[in-house]
């Protein structure tokens, strides 16, 4: 098949396709919906729910923790207080960065050339990894919030050693993950295992696209 035959083939199929497409219903009747289209409506319900849950968790946590710090510090279990404070603080930082990145992605100018726009979008989406990295830093505090002074003074030495090993392991894992969850490691087995769920698929695809834009820029 030569070039002109191929283009004719494409044109013929397009004519048939356009005839069968219910474009009037789609292109004009939904205009009112377009006018109210905004940042929130561009997001999937599950993402909105997750963000809302995160905001509520951080807000309530911040109110409770700050109240304890201000009014009941001397009676409070310091292990719980500091563990919870670190958890809330890290979640808040990750949440703020994530929301900022979502807004930046939403504002990307899609009237620019395809390669430039896709590179920007893919890089921004890939950078949402920073939120995951920050959230992993909380790992050790989930092994300390239930401790108290009495346990340390009078607890079984064996249990305390096990506790120490667990906390140390979680700390090492948290720091290691924070340092190693990066675009460059996207093809590693452990990385794919962590980001295996359906909710991570867009992120993984963005990373593939980022690689593709790099290849295109290099003329590969």
């Amino acid at each position: 098949m030569n070039e002109s035959e191929l283009k004719n083939l494409w044109q013929t199929s397009n004519d048939k396709f356009e005839l069968s497409f219910a474009e009037n219903r789609i292109l004009t009747n939904e205009l009112s919906n377009m006018k109210v289209y905004h940042f929130i409506s561009s997001m999937k319900p599950i993402k909105i729910f997750t963000l809302l849950a995160g905001i509520i968790w951080v807000s309530l946590g911040a109110i409770i923790i700050s109240n304890i710090f201000l009014h009941a510090y001397s009676e409070a279990n310091k292990f719980f207080l500091y563990s919870a404070a670190i958890q809330i603080l890290l979640t808040a930082i990750a949440l703020i960065i994530y929301i900022f990145q979502l807004i930046t992605i939403y504002r990307v100018d899609i009237t620019e050339p395809v390669l430039r726009t896709q590179e920007k979008l893919a890089a921004l989406k890939t950078s949402t990894l920073i939120s995951a990295r920050i959230l992993f830093l909380q790992l050790p505090v989930w092994t300390t919030f239930y401790l108290n002074e009495n346990m340390l003074e009078n607890g079984s030495p064996v249990l305390l050693i096990i506790q120490g090993i667990v906390t140390l392991s979680f700390t090492i894992a948290a720091v290691w993950l924070f340092l190693n969850i990066r675009f460059e490691n996207r093809d590693k087995k452990w990385f794919r295992l962590i980001f295996n769920g359906k909710e991570w698929t867009p992120l993984m695809r963005s990373m593939e696209l980022l690689k593709l834009t790099e290849d295109y820029k290099l003329g590969k």
Partner: peptide, 18 residues
């Protein structure tokens, strides 16, 4: 050109999440 950019950009990125 402007419409192709918007349409292709949307097809590649915005649409891929849905």
């Amino acid at each position: 050109t402007w419409l192709y950019r918007i349409s292709i950009n949307t097809a590649i990125s915005f649409y891929r999440k849905h």
